[in-house]
Simulated scan of single mutants.
Amino acid sequence: MMEKGCVACHVVPRVRAPIARVGPSLNNMGRQAYVNGLLANTPANLIRWLMDPPAVNPRTAMPNVGLTQTEAEDIAAFLYALPDG
């Protein structure tokens, strides 16, 4: 998440980085009803979103950072495994 720049915009629990306030905090991801307010919060939808946010919502400020399927799956698993998730 550091390498792909997630922490430039998001607070990512358990990842040490300066506090970012551009995008929402990623804590409690597993308890959110929606991904980006559009998709039901399921692992498949979160992975879809992570892989290409503008394809899901062309008006999003979140860029496509070029995640592979495996990277998106790993990030989704990490977010859902957090204690608050």
Results as ranks from 00 to 15, higher is better:
Asn41Gln: 05
Pro43Val: 10
Arg21Asn: 14
Phe78Val: 06
Glu71Trp: 04
Met51Val: 04
Tyr80Cys: 15
Met62Leu: 02
Arg21Met: 15
Met29Ile: 09
Val35Leu: 04
Glu71Leu: 05
Ala17Trp: 13
Ala55Met: 02
Val7Tyr: 12
Pro43Asp: 09
Pro63Ala: 05
Leu26Ser: 12
Ala72Tyr: 00
Gly37Thr: 03
Arg21Gln: 15
Met2Asp: 14
Val15Asn: 12
Asn57Met: 05
Pro83Leu: 07
Ala40Asp: 14
Gly30His: 10
Arg48Phe: 01
Ala76Phe: 00
Ala72Cys: 04
Ala81Gly: 08
Gly23Tyr: 12
Arg14Glu: 15
Asn57Val: 05
Gly66Lys: 02
Pro53Gln: 01
Asn57Phe: 01
Met2Val: 14
Pro24Thr: 11
Tyr80Asp: 13
Thr68Met: 02
Cys9Gly: 15
Ser25Val: 09
Met29Ala: 12
Ala77Ile: 01
Leu46Val: 08
Gly5Cys: 11
Val7His: 14
Val12Met: 14
Asn57Thr: 01
Val56His: 01
Ala61Gly: 12
Ala17Pro: 13
Lys4His: 14
Leu38Thr: 01
Gly37Gln: 06
Thr70Cys: 00
Ala20Asp: 06
Gln32Asp: 11
Ala61Ser: 10
Pro54Val: 03
Ala33Phe: 05
Asn36Ile: 09
Arg48Pro: 02
Leu79Glu: 02
Phe78Cys: 07
Glu3Asn: 13
Leu38Pro: 00
Leu26Cys: 14
Ala81Ile: 02
Glu73Asn: 11
Gly66Pro: 00
Pro83Trp: 06
Thr42Ile: 06
Asn45Arg: 05
Gly66Met: 04
Val56Lys: 00
Cys9His: 12
Glu73Pro: 06
Ala40Ser: 10
Gln32Asn: 09
Asn28Val: 08
Gly66Phe: 01
Val35Asn: 00
Leu79Asn: 07
Ala8Ile: 10
Ile47Pro: 03
Leu67Tyr: 01
Arg48Ala: 01
Gly85Val: 08
Ala33Glu: 11
Asp52Ala: 07
Asp74His: 03
Ala33Arg: 09
Leu38His: 06
Glu71Met: 02
Ala61Lys: 08
Pro18Thr: 10
Val35Gly: 02
Val12Gln: 07
Met1Ala: 14
Pro83Phe: 06
Met1Ile: 13
Ser25Arg: 10
Glu3Gly: 10
Thr42Trp: 05
Ala17Phe: 12
Ala20Gln: 07
Thr60Val: 03
Ala17Asp: 14
Leu82Gln: 15
Gly5Pro: 11
Ala20Cys: 08
Met2Trp: 12
Met29Ser: 06
Val7Arg: 08
Pro24Ala: 13
Thr68Ser: 04
Cys9Leu: 13
Ala17Arg: 13
Met1Phe: 12
Trp49Val: 06
Gly66Asp: 00
Val65Trp: 02
Asp52Gly: 00
Met2Phe: 14
Gln32Leu: 14
Val22Ser: 14
Thr70Val: 02
Ala76Gln: 06
Gly23Ser: 12
Leu38Val: 07
Pro54Met: 01
Leu82Tyr: 11
Ile75Cys: 04
His10Met: 11
Thr42Ser: 10
Glu3His: 08
Leu38Phe: 03
Arg48Leu: 04
Arg48Gln: 05
Thr42His: 03
